[in-house]
Design a protein around this nucleic acid. Sequence first.
DNA 1: GGCCAGGACACCA
DNA 2: TGGTGTCATGGC
Length: 218
Amino acid sequence: MPVNLLQEIFYRLLANYGPRNWWPGETTFEICAGAILTQNTNWNNVEKAIANLKKADALSLDKIASLKKDELAELIRPTGYYNLKASRLQEFIFFLKQEHQGSFERLFSHPWQQTRVELLNIKGIGPETADSILLYAGNKPSFVVDSYTRRIYSRLGIVTEGISYDELRKYFMDHLPHELYLFNEYHALIVELGKQVCRKSPKCSHCCLSALCPVYIS
DNA sequence: GGCCAGGACACCA
DNA sequence: TGGTGTCATGGC
């Protein structure tokens, strides 16, 4: 079976870190909430917020929808941007109730490309959050890219640093088989690599990464 | 005490 | 269309 560069990197990451078994979350809604809460935020802080929601018995569509915005904001305070994210969570739930009777099954019952457009029309749901919801909550083969992906693959010389989200995502979608397991693990592995390697050398260039990165291919 | 984290959006030229 | 400011807590 021919293997291209992106697949080769995937296999090396998988061998190095093992399956990540994403997304951390017990329910579809918890995954969606996590996708919103983790925007530009460390996952440890998201875990604190989710724990707060669970402790308050508030991790449900109806409960969050019924909370006052400042009450919700207080529960998710550890994630930062708590006022914004409180609005975004409630916007998402409003959309789900309004357009799909509050049913994730209905939300994901259409062609996922159509669902992606719907999600992107929700205020506060950008491309990465939409793709995370599709992939990890909806089990749809929509590849997720993030700042780690751009940083790592531009330093490897595979893409340019200024590449847009859509261009970067298209590059992966064009060069990988559209397999759910592959997309699921690949993004999770990139995040793991991003956390463990690049953060130690945030200014590192291509050569620096090549020395540090265990998956570098010359 | 500064930097960074699994972004998105409003605003402006 | 692209660049910049804003939103904000917590770990290292």
